[in-house]
Design a protein around this nucleic acid. Structure first.
Length: 294
DNA sequence: CGCTACCTGGGT
DNA sequence: ACCCAGGTAGCG
């Protein structure tokens, strides 16, 4: 009876968008959404001026060199690798941006007020500014020749992309076979598989009905297939809804209320109504259903 | 592999 | 006055 009432209340809350916490998570659906926006609105533009408001936000080279190198470059493309946004520029330079926990990019008229959490501003040739924002100030950018950037960010060590059409159960099995430690921790390692953040890892394991504490080597072929399918479903749905946060233009994504377990401790599992449990695994918050995840 | 630091605003 | 955060680098 209590469970039934909680379910009803939960449904009402979700329907009315009553969970008012500001979404600021930067996982792959959010990063990919912004990358696509950059492709449509920033590729082809020229960077006229760069302002580094927080020197720590530039990983390399120095903030002054960073600004000088970027001035006058044309943006030639916009790609994503794991949670890095990579912008190829004219004259064979590559700009990398990482949101870390809460970072984001916005594209706004130059005249628009700058939020206090602005770390870097790229003024474009159309009276618009690309801005890197982050209240936590962990987000980072770097620029260099492609090979140098790839070496310093260790991009070649990243695992296969979960959103790549070539990602299949054989790839997942091969990547997991090497690793020890709990499945949750292994799935968060971008060198194993590029694509899952803390939320999407918990959601994928729930969809696949697999306990996050399982050791990867013990997964059966069926479980590996379920996990592969779950990861694809979670990421593709999140991306189709344009993520949980605002896009490059400030439009709110629609995936905000699609969580089954993440940050839903004590609330009923949508499959079996058992209260969702919370654990720390590898120092990360982990949420799962103790009844249907084995 | 497992742990801490990084940093600020919001929640308890 | 604490404590904590969707990620990663860098240490032992």
């Amino acid at each position: 009876m209590l469970r039934f009432r909680l379910q009803g209340l939960e449904a009402w809350r979700v329907q009315h968008g009553e969970e008012h916490e500001e979404a600021r998570m930067a996982e792959v659906p959010e990063v990919e959404t912004i990358t696509r926006d950059l492709r449509s609105a920033v590729v082809g533009r020229t960077i006229e001026h760069v302002e580094v408001l927080n020197a720590a936000a530039v990983r390399f080279p120095s903030p002054a060199e960073f600004a000088e190198l970027l001035r006058g470059r044309r943006v030639e493309g916009a790609e994503r690798r794991a949670k890095y946004i990579l912008l190829p520029l004219s004259e064979h330079l590559l700009l990398a941006v990482h949101f870390m926990l809460w970072g984001t990019l916005t594209l706004t008229p130059t005249a628009a007020a700058r939020p206090a959490e602005t770390l870097i501003v790229w003024r474009l040739d159309n009276d618009q500014e690309l801005r890197l924002l982050d209240t936590l100030a962990y987000a980072r950018a770097a620029v260099g020749a492609p090979h140098e950037l790839a070496a310093r960010l260790d991009l070649d060590s990243l695992g296969p992309e979960a959103l790549d059409p070539d990602f299949n159960v054989a790839v997942l099995s091969r990547q997991l076979a090497k690793r020890r430690g709990p499945l949750k921790t292994v799935l968060l390692n971008q060198r194993v598989l590029a694509g899952l953040g803390n939320r999407d890892a918990d959601e994928s394991l729930w969809v696949a009905c697999i306990d996050p504490r399982r050791i990867p080597a013990t997964l059966t072929p069926d479980e590996l297939q379920q996990l592969h399918d779950a990861i694809c479903t979670v990421l593709e749905e999140g991306l189709a809804l344009r993520g949980t946060q605002r896009d490059l233009f400030g439009v709110q994504g629609k995936a905000k209320h699609r969580r089954n377990v993440f940050e839903r401790t004590g609330r009923p599992c949508p499959r079996c109504a058992t209260p969702i449990e919370h654990l720390r695994i590898g120092n990360r918050n982990t949420h799962f259903c103790p009844h249907c995840q084995h």
